[in-house]
């Protein structure tokens, strides 16, 4: 992928870079909006909420921008159809789904009356998404190992 990327003209690369930047920015705003719609305070702690959405974007959208670039067809194939083409894309899918799941589960400790300082808004969800991301990395490693072992012993499987 990178070899083909190197052949591109500078202006095209610059265009892609700018486009990627705007996609990233847009995703941050979208995550912020979704977080608020899911119950985060709308007018208080705006900065914290935005930082959280920045984190989630960095964990989920940023790797995708790096790997599959800005082509809308590839994005749509990967996310709306969930048809990954190679191992990297499988890993990517794992990462993204696990990150979101982690952030989702991260909201659970907030209402508990444990009076812990880390229960403050966005700490748990941030930690949750980081844990989820870690889990995603682990899952994708296992997936890769599984695939490789499958490829090495094709006759055994059949």
């Amino acid at each position: 992928m990178f070899s083909s990327y190197d052949n591109l003209k500078f202006s095209h690369r610059l265009y892609n870079l700018v486009k990627a930047f705007f996609i990233f920015l847009f995703s941050c705003i979208a995550f912020h909006a979704v977080t608020v719609l899911y119950g985060a305070p709308a007018f208080e702690a705006v900065e914290e909420t935005f930082l959280f959405s920045l984190l989630v974007s960095t964990l989920s959208i940023f790797p995708c921008l790096l790997v599959i670039g800005t082509s809308s067809a590839a994005w749509s194939r990967l996310y709306f159809d969930r048809k990954p083409e190679d191992e990297t894309e499988i890993c990517l899918l794992c990462l993204v789904i696990c990150t979101y799941l982690g952030a989702w589960f991260g909201a659970f400790p907030i209402p508990l009356d444990w009076d812990r300082p880390w229960q403050a808004w966005p700490i748990t969800v941030c930690v949750g998404s980081l844990w989820g991301h870690t889990l995603g990395v682990c899952v994708s490693i296992f997936q890769l190992l599984h695939r490789i072992s499958d490829q090495n012993q094709p006759e055994k499987l059949r």
Partner: peptide, 27 residues
């Protein structure tokens, strides 16, 4: 409300956007 939103989001992402899988289309 968190759970209702979650069900809705999942259904939307999983089912509604997936429904036209057979015909390849630009985003």
């Amino acid at each position: 409300s968190y759970f209702a939103n979650s069900i809705m989001t999942f259904v939307f992402l999983w089912k509604v956007l997936k429904k036209k899988r057979s015909e390849p289309m630009l985003r």
